[in-house]
Design a protein around this nucleic acid. Structure first.
Lengths: 229, 229
DNA sequence: AGGGGCTAGATTGTTCACAACATTGTCGCT
DNA sequence: AGCGACAATGTTGTGAACAATCTAGCCCCT
């Protein structure tokens, strides 16, 4: 079982890190030799990843990396919005002084990364800040959901940071959230998180639109696929 | 694969309907003969149910029905709260006149069940009304999450309807939600759903408290289990 | 040339046997 | 009696072989 879980994590990692392309076929035998495991273990891992929504399995036709549509990415972001607001509210209630200190430290490092134009580093810290808030709020159920949502949507979110001026605005929003948590003001924290994720949603929409402006066929193909699933 | 999925549903049904008690061991071989399937298929189904959080699996020690703690039931209800508000908002935006007619029809039948003191029938219609709203809002991601949440928490929710006067209040709240949807007023719908589920949360807390008043050892046992997981 | 059927290869789904591991009961020792 | 080592049993984890199914290439016929 430890092997299965371990294998599951490695496969997930390989998928979210882009090692396997969307719609790429995942042949069980190949994966078995690649990860040095039996086909049975691969099969169990695929079952889990299917349930998580990271891959699709069709009977007798194997598993493929699931392609998250633009529409689904928006749905995911909306759900994330709702859950993060819940957790932000709870975090403002429960945060200890050491929690607040951690948040401040992360924000300080984010400032540095932004100053050095280290976009990738900034994004990682961004994710880290959110996860820290999740931990403060201490809602295991919502936490797990957010983790799986994140792994599903990670690919869509690459474009969102590219919008001009977005990182600076994002940092200000994060500081407002942290301030509300430090002040133990649940309502303000909820509002700040809603504001922040509302902008993220807008930016995601913008990224999708600009992507489709470059590749107009993508929208067409998608609409065709939707009518005959 | 169709067998696996089918099996999965049957097992899930058996668990949520209480055919297997919480913490009861689920021996793969026994399940195999019970459902007339191979052990491999059972194993795949167990993997899915584990991922869903309906059972727990420990290495070399098999699977058991997961016991949802009071605390987790509250967490689940909070998450449900957040997601249903999101969907209510969206439903108010998108509802067609036929959607509204369906909601009104369900509400009318709920009135009847309440008049006939048919509590079980009322609860079923209650769930049906909520699911109908989920369908209107058309957010697949949130929909799936709510379905799995429901299957996890179904056992805890039996007590909530027993509170004196609760059904009548519940019905009024549902009518307010439906009215907001009919008026396409997203903010009002969000607020009405928040109000409703806030009361559900309170009632759940009340049910847990009164349950622990009857069986004070339950809280003790749980706190012991929590310190040494 | 083009389409329909057919065989061969590849891939998944399933069964079975066995190894690995946890639990329980037993035996011998103090 | 109490305690620890140890075999006995039950159960899960894994690999290999086989059956079912899909896919692609080929041939034949029109």
């Amino acid at each position: 079982m430890r092997t299965t879980n371990d294998l599951c994590d490695r496969l997930r990692q390989a998928i979210v890190s882009g090692e396997f392309q969307p719609n790429e076929r995942l042949v069980e035998a190949d994966l078995a030799v690649r990860f040095g495991a039996g086909r049975t273990a691969i099969r169990a891992a695929l079952a889990v990843l299917d349930q998580e929504g990271l891959i699709v399995r069709e009977p007798h036709r194997g598993a493929r990396v699931r392609l998250i549509s633009a529409r689904e990415a928006l749905e995911i972001e909306q759900v994330r919005n709702a859950l993060e607001r819940l957790l932000a509210r709870s975090a403002a209630h429960r945060a200890t002084s050491s929690d607040v200190a951690d948040l401040r430290a992360i924000l300080a490092t984010m400032h540095e990364r932004l100053r050095d134009a280290d976009t990738l580093g900034y994004m990682q810290l961004n994710a880290q800040l959110h996860r820290r808030i999740w931990r403060i709020s201490d809602n295991q159920v919502a936490f797990k959901m957010l983790v799986t949502l994140k792994s599903q949507s990670i690919r869509s979110q690459y474009g969102t940071i590219l919008r001009p001026g977005r990182p600076e605005q994002s940092l200000r929003e994060h500081e407002a959230i942290a301030a509300a948590i430090a002040a133990h003001d649940s309502d303000a924290c909820d509002a700040a998180m809603a504001e922040h994720l509302g902008h993220v949603l807008e930016t995601l929409q913008w990224a999708i639109d600009s992507q489709e402006r470059e590749r107009p066929w993508a929208a067409l193909r998608e609409s065709v696929l939707r009518t005959q699933p």
